[in-house]
Each structure stands twice: as structure tokens, then as C-alpha cells.
Amino acid sequence: MTEHVTDELELYAVGALRPGEADRVTAHLASCPACREQLAEIATVVDALPDMVAMREPPAALKQRILAAAAVDLPAPVKRETTWSFRPGRSWPAVGGLAAAVLLLLAVDLNSLRELKLANQERAEYAGTLDKVSRGGKTWYMAGLDQWRGSGGTLFAPGKPDSTAFVVFHDLQKLQTGAVYAVWLVDADGHWVRGANFRTDGQPVQSVELTVPVDTFSQCAVTLEMSTEGKRAGPLVMQSRIAPPTQ
């Protein structure tokens, strides 16, 4: 066992040691019950320090972003009904539990799944998606704004540079003839680059691939447009700040 770290435990507990020093204490604690016991006593005070912080309400969408990001870790369902049932008219908060279940299938192209039908192929595709997402990838949730409240989408930026980013939308509203949803990436200078155009396919969950890598942009947004080309002109449907997957 290394030398006791008694003199440094207070600094360690409040995070005031430099990284190398903290690593040395961590290594010692792993094999020293006496120092661990002493640290636990100090921790009773340090754990109370957050209680004196001014309470602050996090954005409402943060919880859904966390749950969506966590859902990609769940194992693929072994058996699933081939026919989806969804009751329109329910609000997004009211179907939170259902949404969590739906997110089990994040990033899987549902139309393709229907065509494939075979469970082993479905699992293989799901596993491939998980692999794509989990290797250093990041996710950001966009909540629908104003009249689109209740809809939303999760942007997936895979960690591998040769992988395509995509957005999994839920509860999108159907569009009038001629209109399209446009997915935009916005850089730090405020330049909007169109990453995809799409129309709703009538399913509760819809996956849309982007034609532009996301790693140089700082925001992702969806607007309602009357043209598949040109600058952004329509109203904002949803938006989220994003950061490069490597950060």
C-alpha cells in the first residue's frame, strides 16, 4: 500500500487537487479502508455544500434529452409487434412512457423494418445503429415550438467521421400540399445550411438523414418551407444548440 493521504483528503473532497495529485489519492483510496473511512466523514460536509446554492429551474426539454440519450443504451427488444398502434391527440408529456418505449427504436428506419419483417434483420440493424451512436456519438433533443409544441426530434451525431448524422422526429404534424420540413445546421457566424428536406410519412416516429456533417455547426433547426431549395424563409418549428461530437 502507498503512503496514507490523510493530509490531502479535504482538498481531494472539494476537488482542489490538481489532476495528477487527485489520481494519486484515488489510487491510494482503492486499497486503504482507513483513508476511505476518513474521506466518507469529510464527504458528509462536502455533500451538503450544494444545499446552499440558489435553486434554478432547468429547461423543460433537458429531461427529455437525457432520457432520449439514455434510451440508446437499452438492449434491442427480443420480440415486438409488427404493427404499431398509436393514438393521435395525446400530448407529448402525457405519453412520456410510450415515448420512452418508442425511443427504443431510435434511428431505425421504421419503413425499412416493416419491409424486412424478419426479427433477426431488425435486431442486426438496431445493433448497427447502437454501434453507430455509441462510439463517441452525441445527441441533442429539439422540442417543438409554439404551434408545434408536442412534437420534437433528437439529432444523432455519430462519433465516427464517416457516419451520417440523422434526426429521429416524433409527433410531427402533417403538412399541406407543397410544404416541406427543412432541417438546417447553423454555424457560429449565423450561416444556415440546409441539411435535409422531408415530408411526414404518417408514422409517430420518423428518421431523417442529414446530407451535411454536423461537426462544424453550433445549432440545428427545423423550419417549415414552401421550397426544397434556397434560404430559410419559413417559421421555426424546433431548434437546439449543438456542439461537435468530439468535445
Partner: peptide, 17 residues
Amino acid sequence: LTALATLYDRYGRLAYA
């Protein structure tokens, strides 16, 4: 996932603060 949601409901505000 329900446990994660409950954990967030319980401590998300303090964590964010």
C-alpha cells in the same frame, strides 16, 4: 428508464443549480 426519470425529478433541479 423510469428510475432515471425519477432520479432526474428528484435531483435534476439541484444538479442544474
